[in-house]
Amino acid sequence: MKEYRWATLGCGIIANQLAQAMEAKGRRLYSVANRTHDKAVDFADKYGIEKVYDKIDDVFEDEDVDIIYISTPHNTHINYLRKALAAGKHVLCEKSITLNDEELGEAVALAEENHVILAEAMTIFHMPIYKKLNEIIESGRLGALSLVQMNFGSYKEYDMENRFFNRSLAGGAMLDIGVYALSFVRWFLSSKPDQIVSQVTYAPTGVDEKASILLKNPEEEMATVILSLHAKQPKRGTISFEKGYIEMFEYPRGESAVITYTEDGHTEVIEAGATADALQYEVEDMEMAVSGERDEMHLDYTVDVMDMMSQIRRDWGMKYPEEEK
């Protein structure tokens, strides 16, 4: 398979993890773009990256760039997606991929028009444990799916300038951690939920601090999701079937799960992949999708999750500044 040239747009935590993932594969990022040029230079020096752009938009005009990884704040994504996709670049974009379903619809249309791969960097869609669990589920030994229960709670200090609570940075639980919980739910459900009810409590800035969500799809499979940015919860998912249930902890980059069988209560530990290699799995799947070997990026699930998040926020009447224009 061709060795693709990757550019990172952004120099934050995820960009550092991406560069380290490349190093673990014996490779380097090709280039770096950032709003603050000095930070881009420092980042390039740290990882031996050969090219730094004077202006952030120069990355879109570089004919040598194959794939752009966007890891800027999610309220900036759509503007960069427009430019990258129109320039014929494949894009792996950090979650949440856009603010809402309208923005994502525009991005998907641009990707199709320009014959490029667009994907969200959602670890759940790429960790080997999820693929292995799907094989077990599809074998039929657990029977039909009934319920999915999700928890994701972080404790963030009440700093209203911080991105977690800052409305101008599209803060709030839904787009930051809810996207993980709903991606987990969508991975296991047979189809997208068509019935959704929810409750929300707001932070002083007007973004969602905590939320509870109930979902049901046409197959009568149900799910519950509890989110919080100011009360710690275990990152736990439970998937209940007729003949047993699966439990996963630290599920965003999970590497193991426990199956408990209903008939006799015996348990089975399932292991696959490694948490530390999460970004490597994303890179590998993205390159296979770009090469045409197979589609491992699950953009259809990303669209379903964004539809759900957008519907929930519309039900709440919660908008970000970009959505009020």
Rank of each mutant, 00 (worst) to 15 (best):
Y4P: 09
Y4M: 10
R5A: 04
R5L: 07
R5S: 05
R5D: 03
W6V: 06
A7H: 01
T8G: 05
L9P: 00
L9A: 02
G10M: 05
G10T: 05
C11E: 00
G12Q: 04
I13G: 02
I13V: 10
I13C: 01
I14C: 05
I14N: 05
I14A: 05
I14K: 06
A15R: 00
A15P: 00
A15Y: 01
Q17G: 07
Q17V: 01
L18Y: 14
L18F: 15
L18E: 07
L18H: 11
L18R: 10
L18M: 13
A19E: 03
A19L: 08
A19I: 04
Q20D: 08
Q20Y: 07
Q20N: 08
A21C: 07
A21N: 09
M22R: 12
M22Q: 15
M22D: 05
M22V: 04
E23V: 13
E23N: 13
A24N: 12
A24D: 10
K25G: 06
K25L: 09
G26R: 14
G26K: 14
G26P: 12
R27Y: 11
R27E: 14
R27S: 12
R27N: 13
R27V: 09
R27M: 12
R28I: 15
L29D: 06
Y30I: 02
Y30F: 13
S31R: 04
S31N: 04
S31M: 06
S31P: 06
S31Q: 05
V32A: 02
A33K: 01
N34E: 13
N34G: 04
N34S: 14
R35N: 13
T36L: 02
T36D: 12
H37I: 15
H37W: 10
H37L: 11
H37N: 14
D38Q: 15
D38V: 14
D38K: 11
K39P: 06
A40T: 04
A40M: 00
V41E: 11
V41M: 08
V41P: 01
F43T: 07
F43E: 09
A44N: 06
A44F: 07
A44H: 10
D45C: 09
D45T: 09
K46S: 14
K46M: 15
K46P: 08
K46V: 08
K46G: 09
K46E: 14
Y47E: 03
Y47G: 04
Y47H: 07
G48I: 11
G48H: 08
I49K: 02
E50N: 10
E50Y: 04
E50L: 13
E50F: 06
K51R: 15
K51M: 09
K51I: 13
K51L: 11
Y53P: 09
Y53E: 11
Y53L: 11
D54V: 13
D54T: 15
D54E: 14
K55Q: 14
K55F: 11
I56N: 01
I56D: 00
I56K: 00
I56W: 00
D57H: 09
D57K: 07
D57P: 00
